[in-house]
Design a protein around this nucleic acid. Structure first.
Length: 605
DNA sequence: ATAGGGTTAG
């Protein structure tokens, strides 16, 4: 390409490139112009600022702003307006506000951009203040301005604010359009406000906008979040044309309500019909699988997604990684890690946290820690991930260290953090420390222990042989103990062979989970240890009457590129069929001290 | 010459 040299030809080239959305070239042409000593006029700046905005390049934007100031163009309303948008887009709202205040007559467009910017960042009070300032200056908010607030509040998770803005519009006599409706519906769903949801649905039908794709998707989403699977499917069935958005919404709605197989079926149908599926639809089906224990399917789908040429993003990876962790397929986890580095999303706080968890579950706690240390930004999820990792590995010292470090860095612990620290103490036999942390929960942190914390305490005390204390812990629980609590007690009654409490726990468990064979076996083992053979037989009879058989225990290890399922041989019977997705090659008696038999399972490729 | 609002995945 010939390179233009005269300033006027560069000028027109800049406009041309902007029209073609080639914003990078706009900036490089602009710098060439400056290099030639040309001082741009006020007409050129808006186009150049627009390029910075499109690229979210605040650094270049500030430079352009400075040049505009020096050349006196910064008093031009077009230049000012474009700069306001630049700063809003880059989340520098203070600068945007300063600029807006300096403008002689800012219009509703500039105000709207700023207000929406505050709402998107979840800065509720400032958004409202600026909104009022605008009205006080005599500028009437229009429908676009209100929709910006509704959408912004929804995006930042302030669902009540979103809905109340929607209502405010209504009471002011402003008519809603498709944009406002599809922005408020997700918030309605999160609030599970079915009444409002139904009203809006009626409004949509009356307006005749049922064919609007975004509205359909958000209606499906709303009904899904409210647990109305039937209405959800109805909206879907009445839809005019197949739509990717509706597909994603339906898949996640079905999965949310426990219909995982149906979700997978819907996805398959869409794919077979040749609908152009995007990252969101792929991610929603991968999430559906990994959230419901279908780890193999999640891994397969991820592969399929890449074959389909759809690029995973920073949401896909955290959805996939639990599947790698649960199957302990380090090779897939590492591949996903490599992918996130190559695509520049490894600094994302959710990606990082999911990596920490995956490496911990694959037995690589040191790599976990490395990931944690290298994170440029951490949040509660990241702290809990490394804390849980140490707990999982029985490393109480490190867990405690992290627990204090997080607080010193200004991160308050939550229920999950306490589950981590308590289970770490429990596993390492740090009985007193665990009790201290448990007592601190409500006393120091104002967090009321939940059932999982009581379970940790029962284990902690039970492991230490303090079974009576564990039992009184259960008795003073402020809610009904569940199977996990009683299960923890029964397990440690077996360890210490305490028949009295073991019988109490077992009795509860037989009611709560009558078909769990483990409970029967634990109790019968306690009886056996006391030589109570009659009772042993009674329990065995109960089991066979219900038709229970102990499933083989199972866990995963990885030997080179294959994942292996470990089954405990004692219960391994020839009638046991491994899950269908395991392509069993041959039961391979690799000698693992008599108790283990390896079933080679092929995972992925 | 500039310019504001939408759904679905964690």
């Amino acid at each position: 390409m010939q390179t233009p040299s005269s300033s006027s030809s560069i000028h027109s080239l800049i406009y041309a490139c902007s029209k073609l959305n080639d914003f990078k070239r706009v900036l490089s042409l602009f710098s060439r112009l400056l290099y030639q000593g040309h001082v741009p006029d006020a007409f050129l700046f808006p186009t150049v600022v627009k390029a910075c905005t499109a690229l979210s390049n605040i650094k270049a934007g500030r430079q352009v702003h400075a040049i505009a100031s020096i050349s006196g163009s910064d008093s031009d309303p077009f230049v000012q307006s474009s700069l306001v948008h630049l700063y809003v887009k880059c989340s520098h709202l203070k600068d945007a506000r300063k600029l807006l205040d300096a403008m002689s007559e800012p219009d509703v467009v500039s105000w709207s951009a700023l207000v929406a910017g505050y709402a998107r960042l979840g800065r509720v009070s400032e958004a409202k203040e600026v909104f009022e300032d605008m009205e006080n200056k005599g500028i009437k908010p229009n429908i676009v301005c209100c929709n910006g607030l509704i959408a912004g509040f929804n995006q930042s998770g302030y669902y009540l604010e979103s809905v109340s803005m929607f209502r405010k519009m209504h009471s002011r006599g402003l008519k809603h359009n498709g944009t406002g409706i599809s922005s408020v519906l997700p918030a309605v769903g999160d609030l599970e406000d079915l009444i409002l949801g139904n009203q809006i649905h009626g409004y949509v039908i009356k307006m005749g906008t049922v064919s609007d794709k975004c509205i359909v998707s958000s209606l499906i989403d709303m009904y899904g979040k409210c647990g109305c699977s039937l209405q959800m499917s109805q909206v879907f069935d009445e839809m005019e044309a197949l739509d990717v958005g509706a597909c994603s919404a339906l898949v996640s709605g079905l999965s949310r309500n426990g219909f995982v197989d149906e979700a997978l079926m819907v996805f398959r149908q869409f794919k077979d019909k040749g609908v152009d599926l995007n990252v969101v639809s792929w991610t929603s089906v991968i999430a559906a699988c990994s959230q419901h224990g279908k780890d193999m399917e999640a891994l397969d789908l991820f592969r399929e997604m890449q074959i389909a040429g759809v690029k995973p993003n920073s949401i896909t990876i955290p959805c996939l990684l639990p599947a790698c962790g649960n199957t302990a397929t380090l090779i897939h986890g590492k591949a996903a890690h490599g992918f996130s580095i190559r695509s520049g999303i490894s600094d994302d706080v959710y990606v990082g946290s999911a990596l920490i968890d995956m490496y911990a579950k694959c037995g690589r706690i040191k790599t976990s820690r490395l990931c944690f240390d290298r994170m440029p930004m951490r949040n509660l999820v990241s702290w809990n991930a490394i804390l849980g990792g140490y707990a999982m590995h029985g490393k109480a010292k490190e867990a405690i260290e992290i627990f204090h470090l997080m607080q010193r860095s200004g991160q308050k612990p939550d229920l999950v953090s306490f589950t981590g620290i308590l289970s770490a103490c429990s596993q390492s036999g740090l009985t007193e420390e665990g009790q201290c942390y448990f007592n601190d929960m409500s006393r120091e942190h104002g967090i009321e222990p939940g059932v999982e914390h009581y379970t940790c305490m029962v284990s902690l005390l039970g492991r230490a042989g303090k079974l009576e204390e564990a039992y009184s812990m259960i008795k003073k629980m402020p809610f009904e103990p569940d199977g996990c609590v009683w299960g923890a007690l029964l397990s440690f009654c077996r360890v210490h062979n305490n028949m009295t409490l073991g019988e109490i726990a077992a009795k509860q468990l037989f009611k709560l989970e009558p078909t769990n064979p483990v409970n029967y076996i634990l109790l019968s083992n306690i009886y056996a240890s006391k030589g109570k053979w009659c009772e042993v037989n009674e329990v065995r009879d109960m089991m066979s009457k219900i038709g229970l058989r102990k499933d083989p225990g199972c866990s995963w290890i990885e030997v080179k590129p294959k994942a292996q399922m470990l089954l405990s041989q004692r219960h391994f019977t020839s009638s046991y069929d491994p899950p269908a997705h395991l392509n069993r090659i041959k039961p391979n008696s690799i000698d693992c001290n008599i108790t283990l038999q390896l079933v080679i399972a092929q995972v992925g490729v």
